[in-house]
């Protein structure tokens, strides 16, 4: 078997998904419409077939998503037959629970945390399934498969439960909840190889397309109404694709002609750049993601 390692990873992920469904009362799968959550959806389908996926999906919508991703998300939910819950960062802003960032680098990425924690409380979810991978970032590399969070959603690396032999302990006190990461051991290359192998569809922004862009600090950002454009920004047009798909305001585009999964996979691997390099909000400081995680960020 050519992709023997993917088969092993898939077995592991299915085991984790089934443990989540068995150990918790009310799981939810956090779905962003990005490639990792699309792979998660596929794995859930495989884990529970011929039964239905036994939990809802939830999207914390910053309101700054690529319209292509939202369109794709709704289509996929219909195909899978799962319920999608959407909660909006805009509502949290309107309720004065969070303050919109201002200035050139304003982003709603960090604001999602509040909306997420409120939604967890609203629906009494005891576990949130996420598509985070350990190869993404150095503080993620230390994340457990079951990560226990307190009432405030906070992550304390000192209180992480050891998971010898992948024995997963999901016992929690009232008010606590768990973030579960079934694709912890997958790399970006594994994700793309799996998308190719399974013939999965992706939002069009992952492939080369013509787009109006803003050139800032040497990076290309999608032109949109959400971006605070300043004098030093240059507006250009180019053939680009996105390697990670977060908010339009904080995801950088690459000049590329890769218009198929195969070409994208090849180009990514040849580039040797990491995908988080395209996340502008991670570049704020050396521990940007770790700081956000401690505060309850996914």
């Amino acid at each position: 078997m050519e992709n023997r390692h993917l088969y092993e990873l898939e077995n592991e992920s299915i085991y984790i998904l089934r443990e989540v469904a068995a150990q918790f009362k009310k799981p939810v799968l956090l779905f962003s419409g990005g490639k990792d959550s699309i792979v998660m959806a596929r794995l859930a389908q495989k884990a529970f077939y011929p039964s239905k996926i036994p939990f809802s999906f939830m999207h914390i919508d910053t309101g700054h998503n690529f319209p292509e991703t939202i369109e794709f998300r709704d289509k996929l939910m219909k195909e899978l037959g799962v319920d999608l819950i959407v909660r909006y960062v805009q509502d949290s802003i309107n309720e004065n629970k969070v303050q919109e960032e201002t200035g050139k680098y304003a982003s709603r990425n960090a604001l999602q945390t509040v909306t997420l924690l409120d939604a967890i409380e609203e629906f009494s979810f005891d576990v949130c399934l996420g598509g985070a991978r350990r190869d993404e970032e150095k503080s993620r590399a230390k994340e457990r498969i079951f990560s226990v969070r307190d009432d405030f959603g906070q992550w304390d690396y000192k209180k992480q439960r050891p998971e010898p032999f992948q024995e997963l302990n999901g016992k929690i006190q009232f008010g606590e909840n768990v973030r579960a990461f079934p694709i912890s051991n997958w790399t970006e290359e594994d994700i793309w190889t799996y998308i190719l192998q399974e013939g999965l569809e992706l939002p069009s922004v992952y492939f080369a397309h013509k787009r109006k862009l803003v050139k800032r600090d040497g990076a290309l950002i999608a032109h949109s109404d959400y971006l605070n454009i300043v004098d030093t920004d240059e507006i250009v047009e180019g053939l680009v694709r996105f390697r990670t798909v977060g908010d339009m305001t904080c995801t950088a585009a690459f000049l590329s002609e890769a218009d198929t999964v195969k070409k994208v996979l090849h180009e990514n691997m040849a580039s040797k750049h990491s995908e988080r390099g395209a996340r502008i909000d991670d570049k704020r400081s050396e521990s940007a993601l770790e700081d956000r995680k401690k505060g309850g960020y996914f």
Binding site: R134, D135, K138, S139, A141, K142, Y157, E290
Partner: peptide
Amino acid sequence: TDGLVAEREQGITIDVAHIYFS
């Protein structure tokens, strides 16, 4: 391989880190 802030400050490894390469 130095992941967490505390580890960088103390210059040691505290927790299990996972590293992937091919």
